[in-house]
C-alpha cells in the first residue's frame, strides 16, 4: 500500500525521527547479517588458517631446522637446502618423478581416443564406459598389489600375455630398465577412466554445426578432429595436464607397495617416497621438509607456466 501512496502524502509523513529510526532498524538488521556472514565465512577461513597457512608456515620453518620429528628443533639456516643440492638420491628421485610424467601424454592420448570411440553409438557402449571407470574407483593399494602379481617375472599375467605373441617379457619390477615403465603403464591404466570421462563430456559438448559446416567445406575426418575436436576439448586437456602433473609429482603409494626398497638400483624411488623415507625411517624430518618444499615450488612453477601458456593459446569461437 505504501508504494501506491501519493508522493506528497508520503513526504508529509516522513519525519527526521522516522529516518533515524529507519537507519537504526537497518543498522540492526545489517549487524545481524554481518554476524551471520562472519559465521559462514569463519569455517573456511579457520580451515584455511588451521590446515593450510599454519602447516605451511610450520613446514617452511621446519625446513630450516635440524629436527627428527619427535624431539626439539634446532635452527640451522639453509643447511638442509645445501645438503639437498649435493644429495645424489634427491636428484635421482627427482629424475624418476619427472620420468613418471611420460605417462601423462600417453594417458591423455589414449583416453581421448577412447572418449571418441565411446561417444559413437556402438554396441556395449555403457558397459565399456563402466569397465574403463572401474580402476578409478578401486583402491590404489589393492590395484598395486594386483599389478605386482601381474608383473611377476615368472608367472605374472603380463608376461603370460606377451608369451602368447612369442615375446619373452622382462622381470618387470626387478629390472632397472623396466621397473619405471611398468609403473607408468599401471598409472596410465588407473587414470584412463577419469580422463576418458571428462573427454567424453567435452567431445559430446562440441556443437554439431561445426562439423556440419566443416563437412560442407570438404574437410575429412582427420581435419575435423585436428581443427574442431582438439581445440574444443583444450580446456579439458589443460585441466587434466595440470592435475596429472600435480598428482604425478606426489606418486607414492604404488611405489611403496610394488617396490618397497625403491626398486632395482633405486630406479623407481620417487621424490615423495624419498621424503617419506627420510622423515619417518631416517629421522630427518627437517631435511625431508626442505625436499617437500622444493618439490612444492617446482610444481608451482610448472603449473604457473602451464597457466601462462594456456592463456596465450586461448581462443573463442564467438
Amino acid at each position: 500500500m505504501a508504494t501506491t501512496a501519493p508522493p506528497d502524502q508520503a513526504i508529509a509523513t516522513w519525519t527526521k525521527a522516522d529516518a533515524k529510526a529507519s537507519r537504526k532498524r537497518n543498522a540492526k538488521l545489517h549487524r545481524k547479517e554481518y554476524v551471520w556472514a562472519a559465521a559462514f565465512m569463519a569455517a573456511p577461513v579457520i580451515g584455511w588458517v588451521a590446515f593450510l597457512l599454519f602447516p605451511m608456515a610450520f613446514s617452511i620453518y621446519a625446513s630450516f631446522t635440524n629436527w627428527n620429528g619427535i624431539g626439539k628443533m634446532k635452527f640451522i639456516g639453509v643447511q638442509n637446502y645445501v645438503n639437498l643440492v649435493s644429495d645424489p638420491y634427491f636428484w635421482k628421485a627427482l629424475w624418476n618423478t619427472v620420468f613418471y610424467m611420460i605417462g601423462i601424454p600417453i594417458g591423455l592420448a589414449l583416453s581421448l581416443a577412447l572418449a571418441l570411440a565411446l561417444s559413437r553409438s556402438i554396441r556395449g557402449r555403457t558397459f565399456f564406459r563402466t569397465v574403463y571407470y572401474i580402476p578409478v574407483i578401486s583402491s590404489l593399494a589393492a590395484i598395486a598389489i594386483l599389478w605386482q602379481w601381474a608383473y611377476n617375472g615368472d608367472f605374472g599375467l603380463v608376461n603370460q600375455f606377451l608369451a602368447v605373441f612369442g615375446i619373452e617379457g622382462p622381470n618387470w619390477l626387478m629390472d632397472a630398465t623396466w621397473a619405471k615403465p611398468a609403473l607408468i603403464i599401471m598409472a596410465v591404466w588407473k587414470g584412463l577412466g577419469y580422463s576418458m570421462l571428462l573427454y567424453l563430456a567435452a567431445v559430446q559438448a562440441v556443437p554439431q554445426s561445426l562439423y556440419e559446416a566443416a563437412s560442407l567445406d570438404g574437410a575429412n575426418a582427420w581435419q575435423k578432429f585436428r581443427k574442431i575436436t582438439l581445440p574444443m576439448v583444450r580446456p579439458v586437456t589443460f585441466f587434466l595436464v595440470v592435475t596429472n602433473i600435480i598428482g604425478g609429482a606426489m606418486i607414492f603409494t604404488e611405489i611403496n607397495i610394488m617396490t618397497p626398497t625403491g626398486g632395482p638400483q633405486w630406479s623407481t624411488a620417487s621424490l615423495v617416497w624419498y621424503i617419506w623415507q627420510k622423515a619417518f625411517k631416517n629421522l630427518q624430518m627437517g631435511y625431508a621438509t626442505s625436499m617437500a618444499l622444493v618439490l612444492g615450488i617446482l610444481v608451482l612453477i610448472v603449473t604457473a607456466i602451464q597457466f601462462r601458456m594456456n592463456r596465450a593459446n586461448n581462443f573463442s569461437i564467438d
Binding site: A27, R31, Y34, V35, A38, A39, M41, A42, A43, V45, I46, A50
Partner: peptide
C-alpha cells in the same frame, strides 16, 4: 559499526575454534 563487525567476526571465530577443539 566497524568495531561491531570485528567483534562479531572475532566472536564467531572463537566459537568455531572452541567447537573445533
Amino acid at each position: 559499526m566497524r568495531r561491531m563487525k570485528a567483534a562479531a567476526i572475532a566472536t564467531t571465530m572463537a566459537g568455531a575454534l572452541t567447537l573445533a577443539a
